[in-house]
Amino acid sequence: MVYLALIALIGGIACGIAGLDNTAPVEVIVSHKDLILYILMFLVGISIGLNRGIIKKIKEYHIRIFVIPAGIIAGSLAGGVVSGLLTGLPLNESAAIASGLGWYSLSGVTLGNLAGAQAGSIAFLSNLLREIFSFFSIPLIAKKLNYPSCIAPAGATSEDTTLPMMIRYTDEETVVLSVFNGVICSAAVPFLISFCYNFF
């Protein structure tokens, strides 16, 4: 699966660079990516439904379901501060860049407006790298640590782009936690970027 994902990613980038994104099959796929995601989520819902007792397990988590997004936000901000110390960027910019939690499109544009083109570019590329890293680290983390920890590198993308890898390498229960985490992190990103940039 990892190899297939890598081939699909590199193939897509190559098509984009070569200008093939306007050809019929590629354009159809790209313009219908939301529909593909919805079909995937419907199929995931079927998988979850076939797994008896999973909803009951999720309910049992109660307030503890928030530990994953809380850990991701705390860890990301700490990592942003460390990166800032190493690169010499101001603390507020560093924390704000890390606050993207993998959501490269939003963080790139927002930081670009707040702190200038360079910070915007770093936010875009670092969060993009985080998303790509998540794809390929999920199988390793699932094997070496545990399933819920796979959600950590994915951050805000755990409800959409990295969800397919979560589906392949973890279980239905973790997929539900992953979607929940993605919703919380995605909602937090705009506030976190603004808060970190203005108050750190």
Partner: peptide
């Protein structure tokens, strides 16, 4: 950008693993 991806991603895993 590499540093800003690496440390937040790794620190997230370090923070989340013990919590889970």
């Amino acid at each position: 950008s590499f540093l800003f991806f690496l440390f937040p991603a790794v620190c997230s895993v370090i923070a989340v693993y013990p919590l889970t």
